[in-house]
Every structure is written in structure tokens, then in C-alpha cells.
Design a protein around this nucleic acid. Structure first.
Lengths: 235, 235
DNA sequence: TGTACATCAGTGAACGCGCGTTCACTGATGTAC
DNA sequence: TGTACATCAGTGAACGCGCGTTCACTGATGTAC
């Protein structure tokens, strides 16, 4: 309905910020068709530019994909950091919040998520990307370390790193099997959020932590009775 | 070194069992390059046949992929069934064995596994495929049901279906993040097997099950001290 | 048992298509003086 | 402030390539009689 196309009616010969536009375009295409289903030419077309233009900014398709993953890991890290909030108000509930944030990210940013974890780019061969990935995982790991320091005495537990990997794996499993609405995900009689939350709670209980939403005291362990957070799930 | 190429030296005009050969060829290509990285033409070439030949047996690439997934689910079901062994010698250890078998399948049959879970074919739109998938998951579910019936009194637990989904998610998460050697998987300072096993044990402990390899008695809960199964992991 | 014929399962040539990539080019922008 | 010039960031034409798909075909196989 606007007479000017976009406040900058004629783009003119120079685009202005093509690199950014290409990233956005690719992100949109990935969200639509998955990381396999987008091509370099696609991205150019979608950014309204000739097929040769992207070469000014990216070496090739993989380079573009890596940039997206890079940015994804950075946003992921920020999201997890915010959720963790340095363990406030208490370690256990902050930890659960991290799990939820993980899932929310996968759900809200499917394009980033699949670029990061499902696109097949070799993360460990790209130092910058690897570092970004490590920083994001570092949040989960730091949280696990705090949790580890708090496990009730007398409870055997694995190294903090392993705890972090358990949570990561569980969250990733839920996210990739049930998390996204895109096309082929399996249907569930419960929400992925509930599924993950319940799983994390049971896991925490296995580490000797109290699991009720309103934990009586940080030290009380594992003997509650009532419905619990999975009460809402169908029988 | 054999003078006859394969006991049936000249294939002749008719292949004999092209459908099977195409499936095998595709399986090999998927294992090599991932489910995205194989084409219909590729499969034909790899089976030593013209590019038009596959059309006699499959409608298109997706049809071929679906056949592979179908077969994969069937083998998966068989593997899990064998591992579960109807809960012998006891439910808990049989349950753990199912987890291991899951991971072993993902590791040993990466092509099947990725066709089943990572190829993007819409499982729920294909009734036959869906049924096969359900049958495979049914094993995990049945195991979870047996487990649920056995949870110690007084321990809150989720529905058996949810327990099954937790294990599935955890196993899938470990498998897809760390499980396969193909290209871009992340390195770990522990084996995926150990990671999954420890995770399952903690989860089971969270359900009130004893977790030591040699459980003293079905009722004793969560108070052991020694190294445990994750003792072997690096600090 | 032999023959004629239908059916089956491949061939190979051909097509259109879109992708990746290169190239000489040119319009726009920034800057030295 | 104005001008000349270098640099930058696009264009568009062109190419080779492999894929998917169709088609008339033909060699091989099975079967009715």
C-alpha cells in the first residue's frame, strides 16, 4: 500500500548491505526448506540480486552456511546466558530454565538451529565456529558445574562435563525429534516442553536434588509424593 | 583376483535383482555422503545401470529413500526386540541393554539411521512407514511400561509413554551429536556408550531404581558411594 | 518338447533446467588535493 | 568547494555440468498351446 517500496525506493546499483541481506535470505530459505534445500543462487535471488553478487561476500555456499551457524551459536550463547542468569534465584531452577531456553531456541530459530546442528558443516574444522560453539556449550557446562558442587553428599555423580552432555543430549533429542513444526516431525500427546522438563526433573532427582517446583529447602532430597510437573501429561 | 567377476560374469541385459541392488547402492551412498548427498542418478550409476532403470522400481528418489527407511525401521525393531529380550534377566538391566542397542544401531547402521531420522521424509504421511516406525518405538514403550509397573511405591513418575520418550530422546541426542564417525560429529572425552549408559542410570535412579551394576536389593535407593559406571570417565 | 507371443526390465539418446562459477564490464562511492 | 581518480560492489552473459525425466527401443524371460 505504500507508494515508496521501502523508504529507499530504488536500491540503485549498490545494495548497501548485501552481506546482511544474504544472511537473512538464507536464514529464511533454511527455515522454509531445511539446510539441504537452499542453494547459493537461491539466496541471491531471494535477496534480489544477481547470481554472481554473493561471491563478493562469501567464498561459497558453505562459507555462507558457516556464517549463519556462527551467528546462531552467538545468539544461542546469549539466550542460554540470559536463562542461566548466573544461577539465580537458585541453581536447580536456573538449570531447568536453561533446558527450556534450549528448546525455545530450537523452536523459535529453527533455521539457526539446523544450520548449527543439522547442516553437516564440520564445526571442528573451523576454529572460529568451534570457539563459538564451545562458548555456547560452556554455559551449560558452567551450570552443570555449579550443580555438581551442590549435589547432596553421599550421592554418586558423574563429572560435571558429563552432566552437561546429558542435558545437552536430552534437549537436542527432544528438539530434533519433536521440537520443530517443520514438515516431518512426529506428533506427540504432550508438548516438547513438558517432555523435556519432566525428563530433566527426573534426571535431577537421580542426582539427589529435590524436584518439586517449590522446593522446600535447597538441601532436602527426593522423597516427595504429589503429582509433580508431569501430572498434566495424558495417561 | 577371480577370473569370473562374481560367479555370474556377464550380467546381461537383465539385472536380476535391481531393486535390491539399488537399495544397497543408495545405502552405501548415504553412509558415505549423508542422506542429502545422494541422487537418484547416483544410485543407478553405483548399481551399474542406466539412469532410467531405477524408474522401473521406484517412483522417484523419495520413494527409494522411504523404502530404505522402511527397511531400517524393521531392522531397528528386530535389534531392539532382541536387546529387550522380554525383560530378561531383569527389567532394569534389560532396559539399559535397549539403550545400548539403540546407540549401537545408530553407530553400526548410520545410513539406515539417518534415512529414518534425518532425511526429512515425512514419516507420518506414509502409513506403512509410520506403522513400521511405531512398531520399533513400541519396543521401547513396552519396556517402559514394564519399568513403570515396577517403580518403587511412593516415587512419583510420569506415564510410561513419557518415560519411553525420554529414553528415546536421550539416546537420539547422544547418537546424533556424538554417535557417528561421519565427518562433522563432535569429539568427546568419553565414549557415547558411556555417556548414554550413565545418563540412563541417573534417570533410572531418579525413578527410584537402584543403579549399581550389582544391585543389592530392588528397594535400596540412591545411597551408594563407590565409583559407579561413570568412574571411568575423565575428570 | 517346441514354438509363438506377451510381458518384463533394461538401454541410450534426448530434453529442459537450475546450479556454480568466471569474466569483462560499469555504476556508485569515497577521498586526495 | 570542486574535481580526478581509485576502489568497491554490483551486472549480465556465458560456460560446463549433472540431474530428473521421458521416450521409443530391444533383449531376455516366461508361458499357452
Amino acid at each position: 500500500m505504500s507508494w515508496h517500496k521501502d523508504r529507499r525506493p530504488e536500491r540503485g546499483y549498490h545494495h548497501g548491505n548485501l552481506k546482511e541481506a544474504l544472511l537473512q535470505a538464507a536464514l529464511g530459505l533454511i527455515a522454509e526448506k531445511g539446510p539441504a534445500g537452499f542453494t547459493f543462487a537461491d539466496a541471491a535471488r531471494s535477496a534480489g540480486v544477481s547470481a554472481a553478487a554473493p561471491y563478493r561476500h562469501f567464498r561459497d555456499r558453505d562459507d555462507l552456511l558457516a556464517s549463519i551457524a556462527q551467528r546462531g551459536f552467538e545468539q544461542f550463547e546469549a539466550t542460554l546466558t540470559a536463562a542461566w542468569d548466573d544461577g539465580r534465584p537458585d541453581t536447580v531452577s536456573a538449570f531447568e530454565r536453561v533446558g527450556k531456553a534450549y528448546l525455545a531456541f530450537a523452536r523459535n530459530e529453527p533455521a539457526f538451529y539446523s544450520a548449527m546442528f543439522e547442516s553437516g558443516i564440520p564445526v571442528d574444522l573451523n576454529p572460529t565456529l568451534m570457539a563459538a560453539s564451545e562458548r555456547a556449550f560452556g554455559i551449560i557446562r558452567a551450570a552443570a558445574e555449579r550443580l555438581a558442587a551442590l549435589t547432596p553428599p553421599g550421592v554418586t555423580r558423574p563429572p560435571a562435563l558429563m552432566m552437561a552432555l546429558h542435558i545437552w543430549s536430552l534437549a537436542h533429542g527432544v528438539a530434533s525429534l519433536f521440537g520443530r513444526g517443520d514438515a516431518a516431525r512426529r506428533k506427540l500427546p504432550m508438548s516438547p516442553e513438558d517432555l523435556l522438563e519432566a525428563g530433566v526433573l527426573i534426571y535431577l532427582r537421580g542426582l539427589g536434588f529435590p524436584t518439586e517446583r517449590k522446593a522446600p529447602a535447597p538441601e532436602t532430597v527426593a522423597e516427595e509424593r504429589p503429582a509433580g510437573p508431569w501430572g498434566k501429561a495424558p495417561k
